[in-house]
């Protein structure tokens, strides 16, 4: 059986008791004029500070929106341009002759650049310090892999 909830009547407060309590709690304390003025001026200062804060908050709204848009645009550009996905290179398909990965100075970076370094390492021959494309102070397999990675990159691909 569902429980029924009936509204109870509000409790009443006897008038006599209320009057007695009021007379007990009433405080007729005179406040000197200077103190009252000081209190009013303090309250006024606090209120005006709140007003200034509200003004700042109003100005901050559009600024925050603009900053949000700028950050979003920057992230979008970063993502589209593939920043951070590889070393700084020439534009796609246009690896310049000056690229540090263009070992044979052919004007493009391809697997032959990696092959030259790999063959030199394999044969134990001379290596050029410029081949240290990773900048770790040594010419080794990491440089070969880095050059090959650039050669096959689809973002900065060098195939003609």
């Amino acid at each position: 059986m569902p429980e029924r909830h009936e509204r109870q009547p509000e409790p009443t407060f006897p008038d006599r008791l209320a009057e007695d309590l009021r007379s007990l709690l009433r405080v007729d304390l005179p406040v000197p004029g200077e103190i009252e003025d000081e209190l009013v001026s303090l309250a006024g200062g606090r209120l005006s500070r709140r007003g200034r804060l509200r003004l700042h908050a109003r100005r901050a709204g559009p600024l925050a929106a603009a900053a949000g848009l700028a950050i979003t645009a920057w992230i979008g550009l970063w993502w589209m341009r593939g920043v951070g996905t590889g070393p700084a290179l020439s534009p796609p398909g246009q690896a310049s002759a000056a690229s540090i990965f263009d070992i044979d100075a052919s004007g493009r970076v391809d697997v032959l650049d990696a092959f030259i370094v790999a063959r030199a390492l394999h044969q134990g021959g001379m290596t050029d310090r410029k081949w240290d494309v990773t900048g770790d102070g040594a010419v080794n397999r990491l440089d070969v892999d880095a050059i090959a990675a650039v050669a096959v990159s689809i973002v900065r691909g060098t195939s003609s």
């Binding site: 996905t85 391809d110 697997v111 990675a149 096959v152 689809i154 973002v155």
Partner: peptide, 21 residues
């Protein structure tokens, strides 16, 4: 072989390999 993993799922890939043996 060497290839760019970002090419997977796309329509273009560059593949390369070599051997010094």
């Amino acid at each position: 072989p060497y290839y760019d993993p970002r090419a997977l799922g796309g329509g273009r890939i560059i593949i390369a390999a070599f051997d010094t043996g």
